[in-house]
């Protein structure tokens, strides 16, 4: 049983079973559980995107809330101003976030190193303040989705007749499944991307920019692509989040704490620059939040301290520690033949 490859196999099977179980939650679980897990999954999506950005492309953005907010507002605009189905609004939200990423990248890429973080943060603030001026969507006080929108959303009646229960429960189930699919799709897309030529170039860049440049990797263009793609994923997630929340305000949609700070801690604690990291991180986060729910902001302090401790003592987070101690690797990106892997 001490053979890492056997354990790896076992964990992979458990993961697969877990995914199947997760798909069944709306059928067998309570509505509260569905809502809880929806929150977890959306945070996971945001964390996966930020991990790609900061952990693999070296772009430490503190402005991801801009994409969540724009995604949310674009979806609201589609529903309220154009009378579209919210699900179409999600797609529009993703595209809108990607469009915002273009000028944002153009601007923040000028700022070297750590100042990139400040640049993205400022752009997110500007975006928030601009959306607070959009009177048709409630200006600074925000607005709600029209009553019943989510109940008549594409697919909800069918789910309702299939699962039974209320329309609200059916709409929760739908958004839950969408979040699950999006999380899985992000994970698979990230894996395939990092294994692709572009992804290898990206990792080469992280290790040695000069060398990567000399073999024909264009750092700026590559990073810009990652920035845009993760903006798309983050925008989709933002729109999805606010279908479930049904009410949008500039403060909530562009919250740096909810959509960026948590996400950063989740990724760092789980293991930045590793694919399983955000998954581990989001589980830790969820249990911390539940355990310390009665102590006000204490869990934020604990979270901050954990993040600091990880950076001091284990830069690859919990997953990195685990891999180091056990030799078990999942979704490994290393280009080594398995025998050599075993020899370590």
């Amino acid at each position: 049983m001490s053979d890492p490859r056997k354990i790896t196999r076992l964990i992979q099977l458990m993961g697969l079973a877990g995914v199947v179980l997760l798909f069944l939650v709306p059928v067998i679980g309570s509505r509260a559980l569905v809502q809880d897990l929806f929150g977890v999954l959306t945070l996971l999506i945001l964390a996966q995107n930020w991990n790609l950005l900061a952990g693999f492309a070296g772009l430490v953005s503190v402005g991801q809330q801009a994409f969540v907010g724009v995604g949310a507002y674009a979806m609201f605009a589609c529903v309220i101003l154009l009378g579209m189905d919210p699900l179409v609004g999600i797609a529009v939200g993703g595209v809108a976030a990607m469009l915002l990423a273009i000028p944002m990248a153009f601007f923040s890429f000028r700022l070297a190193g750590a100042y990139f973080a400040i640049g993205t943060w400022v752009v997110a603030e500007i975006t928030r303040l601009c959306f607070a001026q959009w009177k048709a969507l409630g200006g600074g006080t925000g607005t709600s989705l029209p009553k019943g929108t989510t109940k008549t959303m594409f697919g909800v009646p069918e789910i309702k007749s299939w699962l039974g229960g209320s329309s609200s429960a059916a709409s929760d189930a739908l958004t839950y499944w969408l979040a699950l699919i999006l999380a899985l799709a992000t994970l698979i897309a990230a894996y395939l991307f990092l294994k692709s030529r572009m992804g290898l170039g990206l990792q080469a860049l992280r290790d040695n920019e000069e060398a990567a440049r000399s073999v024909g990797v264009n750092p700026t263009r590559l990073k810009a692509w990652v920035f845009m793609l993760t903006a798309f994923g983050t925008g989709l997630c933002g729109a999805l989040l606010f279908i479930q929340i049904t009410r949008v305000t500039p403060e909530a949609a562009f919250s740096v704490l909810d959509w960026t700070a948590f996400v950063i801690f989740i990724t760092v604690i789980g293991g930045i620059g590793t694919l399983p990291g955000p998954i581990i991180g989001v589980i830790v986060f969820y249990f911390l939040q539940r355990t310390l729910a009665d102590y006000g902001t204490v869990y934020l302090i604990v979270l901050g301290c954990l993040g600091i401790a990880v950076m001091l003592f284990a830069r690859r987070g919990l997953w990195g520690l685990f891999t180091e101690k056990t030799g078990i690797e999942l979704l490994s990106l290393r280009q080594l033949p398995p025998t050599e892997n075993q020899a370590r």
């Binding site: 900061a54 503190v62 973080a117 950063i264 801690f265 930045i272 902001t297 934020l300 979270l303 901050g304």
Partner: peptide, 22 residues
């Protein structure tokens, strides 16, 4: 590596903010 100092000071920011709140 620019990441560790950024993330540590970011963590510190959250800790100080919420510590003061408590």
């Amino acid at each position: 590596d620019i990441l560790p100092p950024l993330l540590v000071t970011f963590g510190l920011s959250v800790v100080i903010q919420n510590g003061l709140l408590e």
